[in-house]
């Protein structure tokens, strides 16, 4: 970011790029090479299929619900954990992180234990006539569970490192709590928050293991994009499956564009203040 930093040796850059390329880029390239070898037409056929379109819609819906819920919850929790010392703070933090270490299979299973036909809440759900698992609500719940810790994980270390001096100063200068939050807290953490939301969104769209358990796999109804990709792959339609995977990666990374925009926007802002100074 800053030209005053000592330069990074070229060896380090090359090593990092080699690691990224070999570990991340190459497998994906191999995948798409294999798909392309079987013809582009078969790949694009994926987007002609009403089941695939339904899967795209469903994935967007699930992400549209889980991302805001976990972002707001994560912000609230980070504020408590990073700014206050209270009994059980460590336990709370560990609980928040716990979903990360729960195998995706289990993240689906827990909802079956609650809402499945023999689950705790089965009678209540039955009386209401609502289908929770094997329908959209179950997919949302499983996704919420899996993507639970991302925002907190990004914010807490940073907020702790920053300390609360600036916020306290704002309050002393007479700012209202909301003003302080909007003008001090949020701008200070915006990269980390954005990063957290990016991870959250990517994982919400790409989650496979947990939604497998609660989906019921009804074609055109409860298959999210990752499940549809698997279904296509299993149908000997590998090119179409990889085309869907490509679209999913793009959708999941859409927040990257937001970050680039924000970065550009703020840089222009600081340039302006420097010019007026």
């Amino acid at each position: 970011m800053n030209p005053r930093f000592p330069p990074v040796p070229i060896v380090a850059v090359l090593a990092a790029l080699a690691a990224l390329g070999g570990l991340v880029l190459l497998p994906v390239a191999a995948l798409f090479a294999e798909a392309a070898g079987q013809g582009l037409g078969r790949a694009l056929a994926a987007f002609d299929d009403p089941d695939s379109l339904a899967a795209i819609r469903l994935t967007l819906l699930v992400a549209a619900i889980s991302v805001p819920v976990n972002t707001l919850g994560g912000l609230a929790a980070s504020w408590c954990i990073a700014r206050f010392r209270f009994t059980g703070r460590g336990v709370l933090l560990t609980f928040i992180e716990l979903p990360l270490s729960v195998s995706p299979v289990i993240s689906g299973l827990v909802w079956v234990l609650l809402f499945g036909a023999q689950g705790w809440f089965a009678p209540a759900v039955d009386r209401l006539g609502v289908q929770v698992i094997f329908a959209t609500p179950g997919l949302v719940l499983a996704t919420l569970f899996v993507t639970f810790p991302f925002v907190v994980r990004q914010l807490v270390p940073l907020m702790q490192a920053q300390g609360s001096e600036e916020e306290e100063a704002a309050l002393t200068l007479g700012a209202s709590p909301w003003r302080m939050f909007w003008h001090v807290t949020l701008p200070n953490v915006r990269w980390a928050l954005l990063q957290g939301v990016l991870l959250l969104n990517a994982r919400a769209m790409g989650e496979f293991g947990a939604v497998t358990v609660v989906s019921g796999r009804i074609r055109g109804q409860t298959l999210t994009m990752p499940l549809q990709i698997e279904a296509l792959y299993n149908d000997f339609q590998a090119p179409a499956a990889f085309a869907m995977a490509g679209l999913l990666a793009l959708l999941a990374l859409v927040t990257l564009a937001a970050r680039a925009w924000l970065e550009w926007h703020t840089r222009r802002g600081t340039d302006k203040t420097m010019a007026t100074a």
């Binding site: 809402f115 499945g116 023999q118 689950g119 289908q131 698992i133 094997f134 019921g216």
Partner: peptide
């Protein structure tokens, strides 16, 4: 897995 889903309430 399919039988289990039906057991768990897949309609």
């Amino acid at each position: 897995a399919q039988a289990r889903a039906v057991l768990d309430g897949l309609q």
